[in-house]
Nucleic acid binder design. Structure first.
Lengths: 189, 189
DNA sequence: GTAAGTCAACCGTCCAGCCGGTATAGTCAC
DNA sequence: GTGACTATACCGGCTGGACGGTTGACTTAC
């Protein structure tokens, strides 16, 4: 009877553990030992599922990229059709969820992101692909050029501020930013 | 007659070397040995000037924060007075320099930034202080609330995209983003 | 019995920090 | 002005610990 305290199959548990460690102790805290221990597995057990640290991080990143793509797609689907649909989806993604939901998403993404970038920037490939698709979508959005990209960049900026703890806008401030950026949705150039 | 090949006092040379290493080989390439060698100093010599790796990174960050504050201040000074002056300075900072100048600044900042964050997020304090001052300035800018913050966030987003190599807007795209964000400067709400 | 999954001990490498040294320059006593 | 002493700047070998990865044995489940 293996384990007992923890749930799910070992693979998922290991990925979750790795993510949690990065969130709690930073990228440098992510060692195979630590991840194994937190997942309730020995180091050998971990290496059975992920043959190297790089494989572990690749696993983390693949899962993340998939989530991101789905999350964003469902955000677009939730917007009425018409010009600026994708841009509106981005605003909704960045501003219309509860603060807790946004922070949770940001922090998970940040952990995976930073771990991958630190180990080898090339590992970010899957995320880059997802982002490239978003940019394509926002370009074909029916808004004047640059408007969608500007909205997207503002969302990215908030993400970065959260990742590095640079600043944390208050709720009223976020609301005002949302309103300001919404002006860019008006088709009148 | 010590040294010969390299210029400047040892302290500055070491800081420059550390920065160059992070840019060339990433945060994990920054070791005391490597920094010392690149600066044309022995490890012992480096440790004479910076008593620990943390002290070295703190030095890097202090220098960076100072530059940033001065750079931004001079950008504000270059804008005509009136509402939106600080926001206009931010746009100028992010869009009106030559691409090479912007990339150079971004890459230097990114190197210091990532090194500090990786070693200990708390080290970012000085940068956070500079950014907090910018946010205060943009709030007292005479623009409707949120507009300045939105412009600032968009600039931050472009910075992040560059840091992590997520995407690289073409010059026409940047120009269009600039135009779009400039709409937020119009006082008519 | 055999294959999948797990374990613990071990190895080689790398790195931060330490420490005992060297060399040059300045200062003071006499 | 010369010898004793001190401060500043720098050197490079060493070490102890951490980390990624390997090995081989054990334990179920089928």
């Amino acid at each position: 009877m293996p384990d007992g305290s923890v749930s799910g199959d070992a693979r998922t548990r290991i990925l979750d553990a790795a993510e949690a460690i990065v969130r709690a102790r930073g990228v440098s805290g992510l060692t195979l030992d630590a991840a194994a221990r937190q997942a309730g597995v020995s180091k050998g057990g971990l290496l059975y599922h992920f043959g190297s640290k790089e494989a572990l991080i690749t696993g983390l990143l693949g899962r993340m990229a998939e989530w991101m793509a789905l999350d964003f797609e469902s955000c677009v689907a939730g917007q009425p059709e018409g010009p600026g649909r994708v841009a509106r989806a981005m605003l909704a993604w960045a501003f219309e969820l509860t603060p807790d939901a946004i922070n949770e998403r940001c922090d998970r993404a940040a952990a995976v992101f930073l771990a991958a970038f630190h180990h080898d920037p090339a590992l970010l490939g899957p995320i880059r692909a997802v982002i490239a698709r978003m940019r394509k979508a926002v370009e074909a959005d029916g808004l004047p050029p640059g408007h969608g990209h500007a909205i997207m960049a503002a969302g990215d900026g908030l993400f970065m501020a959260r990742v590095f703890g640079l600043y944390a806008p208050t709720e009223p401030e976020r609301h005002a930013m949302h309103a300001a950026l919404s002006r860019l949705l008006e088709v009148a150039s």
